[in-house]
Simulated scan of single mutants.
Amino acid sequence: MCPPEAFTSTAGASTLEPDSFVPQTEISKVAFKFATFLLHPAILNHSIRVYLYARDIAAAKGSRYHDEPDKQDLLFIACIFHDMGTTDAFNGASRFEVEGADAAVKHLAMFKFSVWDKRDVWNAIALHTCNGIVQRMGDLAAILRLAIEIDFGRTDSVDGIDDLAALKATFEEKFERKDIEIVLADAVVAQAVKNPAKAPSNSWPGGLYRAYLQDPEWKGVNKAFGA
């Protein structure tokens, strides 16, 4: 595993061009600035790529998360906060997905969003590792999960996106992967080492933690990452 301090480094926001992809609203701009100071650079880039995929998926679906300005903000917040629970700032007692969901709702609470919008964002983030469940928790949750799957290697066709391979190449050239699979798994495991309750046995974090305990000297991608 990487040393814990690797999970608290800043992303160097000055190297990014947020005006080219961040919705130009206060809620999204503040969220992005917040993320650049908290997320590991690899996780920040992953979150940006997930948003870019999600934006294209929403457009292809004719989703309200593409067509309605307020919903565009919700899509951005869900994507940029979905791994926020890996940071020291939001390393609470719950598993990282729940901590990220709680953090997103706290951010939304500073703006005028309905309880239903907050619920949809919370569900999308808290359940994003729960394959087979999250897809049935509403449009936002399904879009976020599909975007994450694409960033982690899904190659089969997606309705409305003509050349997924070309899209991936474009996004990864601009926002490099930086060993995201290793960084993300190590961040989740580092929290579980200190508090095993954050990695329930039947969860994705739990699988990562078990794989680590079985071979703590392993240096590559956690053997349970794709489980």
Rank of each mutant, 00 (worst) to 15 (best):
D159T: 15
R177V: 12
L144A: 11
L144T: 00
L167W: 09
R154E: 02
A185Q: 08
L184K: 11
A199T: 00
T155N: 07
I150S: 05
A147G: 09
L164A: 07
E172N: 08
K174V: 10
L167F: 10
E149I: 06
I180H: 14
A192R: 09
K178D: 13
D156T: 14
I143C: 00
T170Y: 14
E172I: 10
G160V: 03
G160N: 01
A166I: 06
K178V: 05
A190V: 03
S157K: 15
A192C: 13
A199K: 01
L144D: 02
I148D: 15
N202F: 05
S203C: 07
V183E: 03
I150L: 11
S201F: 03
K178P: 01
D179Q: 14
A190S: 15
V158A: 05
A166R: 11
S157V: 06
E172S: 10
L164R: 00
V189T: 06
E176V: 10
L144Q: 06
K194I: 00
E173Y: 10
Q191T: 00
D162K: 15
K168R: 07
F175C: 05
I180R: 14
P205M: 01
L144Y: 14
V193S: 06
P196D: 09
R154A: 00
I150H: 03
D159S: 14
P196C: 04
K168N: 12
V188R: 02
K168Q: 11
L164Q: 03
S157C: 09
L146W: 05
I180A: 15
Q191P: 01
N202T: 12
I161N: 01
I161S: 05
D186W: 13
D156W: 12
G160L: 12
P196T: 00
K198G: 02
S203M: 04
G153Q: 01
K194G: 15
A185K: 08
P200Q: 08
D156I: 09
L164E: 04
F152K: 06
E149K: 15
S201M: 12
D163L: 05
F171P: 00
A185T: 07
K168D: 04
N195V: 13
L146G: 04
F152I: 13
A199Y: 02
L146I: 05
E172W: 07
F171R: 04
A141S: 14
D151M: 11
Q191V: 01
D151G: 03
D151N: 15
K174I: 07
F171Q: 08
V193R: 12
I161R: 07
D179W: 04
V183M: 12
L146S: 02
Q191D: 03
R145A: 15
V188D: 00
I180K: 15
T170P: 11
A147Q: 07
N202W: 10
A187G: 15
D163Q: 04
I180T: 13
W204Y: 14
T170M: 11
E173I: 12
L164T: 08
N202I: 07
A142K: 06
K198A: 04
A185I: 08
V158H: 03
L184W: 06
A187S: 09
A169F: 06
P196I: 11
W204G: 05
D151I: 00
L164S: 02
F175V: 01
G153H: 04
K168A: 09
I161M: 03
A166V: 01
R145K: 11
V183N: 05
K168I: 07
A187F: 00
E173R: 12
S157A: 15
D162Q: 14
I180L: 10
I150V: 07
E176K: 13
I182Q: 12
A166M: 09
T170N: 12
